[in-house]
Structures are given as C-alpha cells and as structure tokens.
Nucleic acid binder design. Structure first.
Lengths: 218, 218
DNA sequence: GCGAAGTGTCAGAGTTATTTCAGGATGGCG
DNA sequence: CGCCATCCTGAAATAACTCTGACACTTCGC
C-alpha cells in the first residue's frame, strides 16, 4: 500500500519535479502550491507524509506545520529549508517537523528521508481497512465516510478479525477461539455481528453464511 | 567571550572529534565520558551549552539532562539521538533538552544548532497546543478562548503528555510511568483527567477509551 | 510554624459492556 | 407449502470499568 505524500511547494518547477519523482518512487502524491491549499488538502486526504517548503508567500511552511499539528496530524513532516537558514530549521522542528533537507537538494536525499520517516513509524498502530472502513485498534474506533464511530473492545476485536481476512468466511468456532479463548457460547458471535451491522449502519457489509459463519464483503 | 560547552559522549573517537571541532569553532570545550563525570563537571564549570549523547552505559543522556535541570542548570542542551529512536527524542525533550541532532551527524549541524541555541536563549519554552487550547509549560497555564486557566504541576504534566500526541490513546500505564515514574496507583490518572475536564470546562476534549486510557480530540 | 494548596489513595456509587437465554423470524429443502 | 435448522434480537443478569467525594499526607509560601 502506497504512502500518501502531500507536497507543499510554491515554485511550480520544483513542485512538479517532486511530484513526478516521488510518484516514480511509488508514493501516492498530492501537491499544493500554498499553505492554505495544503491545510485544505491535508484535512481531507490524511497524508502519511508531508514535504513542506519553508519559504512560501502567505503562510510559511513553519506556520503550516504548526497548524497541521494542532489539527492533530501525526504524519511525518519533512521541511525543505534554505542552506543558511538555521533559525528556520530550529523553528521548524519546534513547530513539529520531524526532519529537514537543505535546498538545493538531491531528490534521492528527499526520498531517503521520507522512507526513514515512514520507518520511524508515525502511525505506529496498523490500521486494517477494507471497503471504505478503517479500524483503529488502539482507540477502538472505525472510520467510515469521514465519520468516526466508537466501538467497544469486543466489537473492535471481532471487526479486526473480519478485516484480517476479508472475503473469507469467519466461522463462529474460530471467532470464539480467537476472541473468547473458547470460553463462550457461539451465539455471542451473532450478538456482536448484529451490533457491528447496526453501528456501521450497513447490514450488507457482514454477510451471514448459513451453517458456517460470517464473511466481510463490499 | 567564548561559550562554554560540555560534551558528554562515551565513545572516545566521537568525543574527541566533537572536542576538536567545537574548539576549532571557538567554543571553550570540556568533555566527560559518562553521566557521573558530566554531572560533576557541570557542577563546577557551569557550562552555557551541553552536548549530550542519549545512549550511554550507566546514566543515560536523558537522566543526565533531567538531573542537570533539577540542579537548576539553564544551559541549552543539545541531544544526540539514534535515527530511529523517536521515543528518545520525546523523552529527551521531556527531560528538558532544547534540541536534538540525529546520529550520524555532520559536525556542521551540531555547530549550527549550538549557535542557534545560544542565540535564541535556551529558556524559551515550547508551547504545545491542540484544538484551540495552548499549554504554557513554564507557567503551568492553559489558554482557551482567550481565557487563561491556572493548572497545578501534575495537571500540566498530564495535559502536556496528551498534547504531545493528540488523537492517540494515552494509556494509564504510560501516564503513570512518564509522570509518576511508575510510583502511583493507576487511578491517579483518572483523578487528574477529571480535574482537567473540570478546569477546561470541556468534558469532551479528553475522551476515555474504556479499558485502555484517554485520548485528546476535538 | 501555620494555613492554604496540592497530591495520592481508597471505597463505593454510577455507568457501560458482556454474555446468556429464549422466543420469534428467516431461509433452504423436499 | 410446511418443516426444521439456523439465525436474529430484546431483555435481563452479571461483570468490568470509570468516576468522584472524602480523607490523610505533603509541600509551599508567608
């Protein structure tokens, strides 16, 4: 699965170069030409990484970074700074940037740093997702159509099990083994499937396979 | 007048390299090979800057930093951390470090950061903020809707921990480790969350994740 | 040293989640 | 069409967890 990168750079040639190069490296790239556009795009595309030019007209890269962090963005942020602007770097790091590259930069350098940032694991928790729903196994919430729905512990465990192997039948027996360590009546699975169907307001997502179990499908 | 720098690094080649390079840049350098020596030297030479390796046998750089701060040292502290140790970095900043450089580092980088630290006057406090609230970690106050609310030390520490990673679950265990050094009943976290909710007059800002912990969200 | 403010623990009340059961609904099959 | 196995769901008991008031203890400022 490709990492989503948001490139924020006001200089068109540089921006295009970054877009093309990062796309060629397998990143899912989106680009913004100024701070305002960047904030808007970040809000609806939830990038995994942000490449941010410090010097831009209007909102500076530092400002953008700070605002993104305030809005709760946990993505790795790589700043592009001018060679002699030590102050910018320090301010950038204060504002929540994770690393920086000095301009003029070698594209390989940017790629290497971005990979390092993904490795550092800004999104430590793996978030299984399928058919437009994404499960946060830490917070026990699912995201669906931009909406966040709270789940209880068991609900989340069951959904995780389903998400681990979508389009594959999950038998009651297996579910009870995995989640309840075998210590529950099989009907408990039905009970929780019912709750998930209700909470996700989509009765078709989890289909019943009569006599066998349940299956997650679009 | 030359800035006095205390270099704390257990690896002799690296230590010597730092000593020579910083001296060449006009700093008045002193060096220690371990945490104990560092504390002793800091006590009688009152450095203006400290360069501190995080990973050392015995006292870690983080520990040394904390103790120096406890003894009232106001010097700028620059930490040297491993590339993938995000946690070290956070802990280092918690312990009172002002900036960090990732190993392996370019010596120019260290010099640049040190100069930046002397220029900006190292007592500038970082102010984490999220969802319209801003915490002043020096004064232990939060600003919210233009209103300034006074917090107690623990309240501020807990809020800071939450602000450091908004939208991410903070487990009771981690909170007790970070704030109470593991020496408290987990219920103490609940107690302080309750106080924050009351003082910030916003019971929804800190959501409880049943069975797990708490999470800061809009 | 004194009072006020802050800190940490506990216990019980309050809340939410879990699990089971039973009866009605549903679907496949002859 | 009717039967039987299977599934679904409301209700209710139980269990688990969270919240809060009270209290003892400590720390801080004067």
């Amino acid at each position: 699965m490709a990492e989503r990168v948001l490139v924020v750079e006001d200089d068109p040639p540089v921006r295009r170069m970054l877009e093309r190069s990062l796309a060629a490296e397998g990143f899912d790239v989106r680009a913004a030409a100024d701070g305002g556009a960047a904030l808007a795009m970040a809000a609806d595309s939830a990038p995994d990484l942000v490449v941010l030019d410090v010097t831009m007209p209007g909102l500076s890269g530092t400002d953008v970074c700070r605002r993104l962090r305030e809005k709760g963005l946990s993505a790795g942020v790589l700043m592009l700074t001018a060679r002699d602007a030590v102050e910018d770097r320090v301010r950038g790091l204060d504002a929540g940037a994770d690393d920086y590259v000095v301009k003029p930069f070698a594209i390989e350098e940017v790629v290497a740093r971005l990979r390092a940032l993904t490795r550092r694991g800004h999104d430590q928790s793996i978030r299984p997702s399928f058919a437009g729903i994404t499960l946060d196994t830490e917070a026990n919430t699912v995201e669906r159509e931009g909406e966040t729905i709270g789940l209880t512990a068991r609900e989340a465990e069951l959904l995780e099990l389903l998400l681990r192997s979508p389009r594959t039948v999950l038998t009651r027996q297996l579910a009870v083994e995995q989640i309840w360590q075998g210590a529950a009546v099989e009907n408990v699975v039905d009970r929780y499937v019912a709750r998930l169907r209700r909470k996700l307001s989509d009765p078709l997502l989890i289909r019943t396979v009569r006599g066998v179990g349940f299956i997650l499908e679009a």
